[in-house]
Structures are given as structure tokens and as C-alpha cells.
Simulated assay, not measured.
Amino acid sequence: MKLAILDDYFDTLRTLPCFSKLEGQEVTVFNDRAESTDELVERLQDFDAVVLFRERTKVTKELLDRLPKLKLISQRSGYPHVDMEACTANGVLLCSNMHAGTPSYAAAEHTLALILASARQIPAQMASLREGAWQMGVGKTLRGRTLGLYGYGRIGGAVAGYAKALGMKVVYWASETSRERARQDGETVAESREAFFSGCDVVSLHLRLVPTTRGIVTENDLAAMKPGSIFVNTSRAGLIREGALLEGLNAGRPGFAAIDVFDKEPVTDPGDPLVNHPNMVATPHIGFVTEDEFELQFSDIFDQVVAYADGKPINMINPEVCEG
């Protein structure tokens, strides 16, 4: 089977133990990013299967309609970047292990890193030191402050554990069902949505991006936050109404933000106003970018490729493709 692996920017996958699972397949690894549909079509037209590197490449109807040889897309986790209707219409099977039982500890650790970096002004303090100006301001201690987690899932739970170890109080907000589950688990749930945003020193998003959660955080939510609060997003940019975060920072509520995700990725404009905001700590979607996390994720992804090649596909999102 001819297999293409897209967007492995640093040619990391060949170095992982799990890469040996692809022995016997005809594998081509692309390290650069295809910037247009035409370029993707030219690149992928002779392949039977494609491995996606998270959401670095969008799989659109236009692309799928022009790839008649393609039969399999293998990836891990959610798939808001994949046109599922077009996959099914074109006979392309999507296999994706949703890893229901395991959090991304890499993403949870990165969330904590962003909170610490923002609270202690680490990027700005580093810049001041390099400019010969020594200290540039006064940070905040996290112990005794309140972390609000929007969403009651695996990654948020890992972040909660780290925060509690630092002496922070943890409060949740989520869907009604998830709030009830949190209460049953003995966790603290905010009395209301407004109380959640207005009462927390740090608010961190941990939700899947689906149609019902797109734009779930509004201008009014951010405006309710404390002037000195920190808003954190390592989940998906689409959870926030477009433009609302920059507007909120300019208005001083929240006081600071720390993000790893953007509305349009990659961000390549060095003058991007959100990246360059003085009260922002930003990283280029690296929450999942560790060797350890890659080994976990791509072990599953390559298992799906091998299973398909053996005629026994697993983790099928649109199994009707195989039933037709």
C-alpha cells in the first residue's frame, strides 16, 4: 500500500520506535507544508492512504473529489478538520482512535507551563534581561488562587491535579451533564457561568471543538473576568468567538492571556496583533509536540494503517464505507 505521511515538519516520526510498524508499506514522509489544494492533489494523487499529523492539513470536499485513488485516512483524536460527508461520498475510510481512556499529558503539562509563564511574566522578564534592563515587573504567586477549568474531561483533570499540587483551588464549569458528574465526583462547580468567569484568577479551556461548542466563549464571558486574571487556551481557537480575545485584552479583561491555538494556523505574520500583544504569552500549537506524545499517538495511527492493509480496519469513524 502506498502511504503518505503529511506535515512531519522535523522528520521526527522515522526516529520513533513505532515507525517500524509500517515495515512492508511503501511510505513517503513529507516534511514541508502544502499551501494549496492544487499542491496537495499533485502530492497525493498516487497514494492509497494518508496519515494526518493532527490538524495541520484540512481535508476538504474539493481535495477528496480530486483524489480517486485514496481509500484511507488514518489519524488520532477529533476530526473537525476533515469533511466527513465528503469522505463517505468518495469511499474514503477515516480511522481515528479517540483515546477515550487516556489524557494528553503533554497538553496538560503545556497548559501548566503557559499558566506559570504568564503569572511570572517569564517571556517579558527574559526579554528585559537580554536587553540589559534587569527586572521589568512583578509577577503573581499561584498558590491560594483559583483555577477555573471550562470542561470536565481527561486533560482538564490532569491540569487540575497539577494545580492542586501547587496549592491552587480548582473550580469547574461545563455542560449541565458534566457539571453534575463533577459534583458527584466531589469537585467544586461554580454557581453560575458568570460566577465562574468573574470569580477565577485563571480560566483554562478544555473542550472538544464540535458544532455545539464553536464560539462558546463570548465577549461577555471575557468582560466578566478580573482585570488581573489570566485566560488560557490550549484546546482549540474556535471555542472562542473570533476576535473576542484580542478585543478583551485591549479592554483589559482578561488582564492576560496564554494560548497555543489560533483561528488560522500556521500564524506566519510577525506582526500578528494577538501574538504581539504585550499581555499575551503565545506558542505555535506545540501542546502535543513531544517525542513521548508522538510515540503514543502514532503507534495508534500506524496500527490503524496495518489493520486496514490486513483487511481488518479498526477505529472506523465512517464504517458505512466498508459496508457498501
Score class of each variant (00 low, 15 high):
G161F: 06
G161I: 04
G161P: 02
A163M: 03
A163Q: 00
K164T: 04
A165T: 01
L166F: 09
G167A: 04
V171K: 06
Y172S: 03
Y172W: 13
W173Q: 10
A174F: 07
A174W: 04
S175N: 10
E176Y: 12
E176F: 07
E176A: 15
T177L: 15
T177P: 01
S178A: 15
E180K: 14
E180R: 14
R181W: 00
R183V: 12
R183I: 12
Q184L: 14
E187V: 03
T188R: 00
A190E: 08
A190C: 11
S192I: 12
R193N: 08
R193K: 15
R193F: 09
R193D: 09
E194K: 15
E194G: 04
A195P: 11
F196H: 08
F197E: 01
G199L: 10
C200P: 02
C200A: 12
L205Q: 00
L205S: 05
H206D: 05
H206M: 05
L207V: 07
L209D: 10
L209V: 10
T212C: 10
T212N: 13
T213E: 05
T213M: 08
R214K: 15
R214W: 06
R214F: 11
R214N: 13
I216W: 07
V217I: 13
V217Q: 02
T218H: 06
T218D: 08
T218I: 02
E219W: 08
D221V: 03
A224F: 11
P227T: 11
P227N: 09
F231K: 01
V232G: 08
N233K: 10
T234V: 11
S235E: 06
S235G: 12
R236A: 05
A237N: 07
A237S: 08
R241V: 13
E242T: 08
E242L: 00
E247I: 00
E247T: 14
G248K: 09
G252E: 11
G255S: 08
G255P: 12
A257M: 04
A257I: 03
A258W: 01
A258I: 02
A258Y: 02
I259Q: 01
F262R: 09
D263K: 00
D263T: 10
D263Q: 09
K264P: 00
E265P: 04
P266Q: 05
V267K: 13
T268K: 14
T268A: 14
D269P: 09
G271Q: 14
L274N: 12
V275G: 03
N276D: 09
N276C: 15
N276S: 13
